[in-house]
Amino acid sequence: MSVEQIIFYVFAAMVLSSALFVVATKNLVHSIFLFFITLFSMAGLFVFALADFIALSQIVIYVGGVLVLMIFAFLLSNKQILDNPKPMRSRFLGIHHLPGIFVALVFFLVLIWTISLVDIGQLQWVKESQENTVKASDNTIHYIGINLMTRYLLPFEVVSVFLMMALIGAAHLARKERKV
């Protein structure tokens, strides 16, 4: 096993384990910091997928912006949770988790059954992707820019309108009401 494979498996294990703990932990502060580890590990996996622009965007936008905003919003919103943290329960699985576990298993079995029915080598998009391989020396940012401003211009503009609507909604919710 090469060094690259070992590093890839370390990143993959970090993503899976920290994402599992993000969902399973009851403490919101621990969950936010584990989410931080998950996002950094995902950026490492993007580097291995030769998606350097996506890896840097992951770090700058999600880790640098969104996660810091989540931490500040949590710390500024509810001081009672920080003053009196509830101890974590020792039971990881309980009877109240059974419906969720059942639904997850059903979806997992349907996913496995669907994958077993499909011949992946015969799918059209797989055949096309085998012809268009990305080399480590390719300038992926150039290709992203061209596709973003030609082929994906309409979805890009729709996302920008949605982000603007979310910003206006957040400003409206954060506004303090004046007493008359």
Rank of each mutant, 00 (worst) to 15 (best):
V3M: 09
Q5R: 10
F8T: 09
F8L: 11
F8D: 06
A12L: 15
V15R: 08
V15G: 02
L16T: 07
L16Q: 03
S18D: 09
S18Y: 13
A19Y: 01
A19E: 03
F21Q: 11
F21C: 12
F21R: 12
V22R: 02
V23Y: 12
A24L: 14
T25N: 13
T25F: 09
L28A: 04
V29I: 14
V29P: 01
S31R: 09
F33C: 08
L34S: 08
F36P: 00
I37S: 10
T38N: 05
T38D: 02
S41M: 06
G44F: 12
L45T: 08
L45K: 03
A51T: 00
F53Q: 06
I54G: 04
S57W: 03
Q58K: 10
Q58T: 08
I59H: 02
I59K: 03
I59N: 02
V60A: 13
G64A: 01
G65N: 07
V68K: 04
V68L: 13
F74M: 13
F74S: 07
L76F: 14
S77G: 08
N78M: 06
N78F: 09
N78C: 07
K79L: 04
I81G: 02
L82P: 01
L82F: 14
D83S: 11
D83A: 09
N84E: 06
N84Y: 07
K86Y: 03
R91A: 11
R91P: 00
F92D: 01
L93K: 03
L93Y: 09
G94L: 03
G94A: 05
G94P: 08
I95G: 00
H96A: 09
H97I: 00
G100N: 06
I101R: 03
F102R: 09
F102E: 03
V103Q: 01
A104H: 02
F107I: 09
I112P: 00
I112R: 04
I112Q: 03
T114Y: 13
T114R: 15
I115Y: 11
I115C: 06
V118C: 06
D119C: 01
L123M: 15
W125G: 02
W125I: 02
W125N: 13
V126I: 15
K127I: 12
S129E: 12
Q130A: 05
Q130G: 07
V134K: 07
V134N: 07
S137F: 08
D138Y: 10
I141L: 14
H142W: 07
H142G: 00
I144Q: 10
I144T: 13
I144W: 11
I144V: 15
G145Y: 07
I146C: 00
L148C: 05
L148S: 14
L148W: 15
T150N: 11
T150M: 06
Y152M: 12
L153W: 10
L154H: 06
P155I: 15
F156M: 12
V159C: 04
S160L: 02
L163S: 05
L163T: 00
M164N: 01
A166E: 01
L167N: 03
L167W: 07
G169V: 04
A170S: 13
A171F: 10
H172I: 14
L173G: 06
R175Y: 06
K176Q: 14
E177R: 15
E177T: 15
V180S: 14
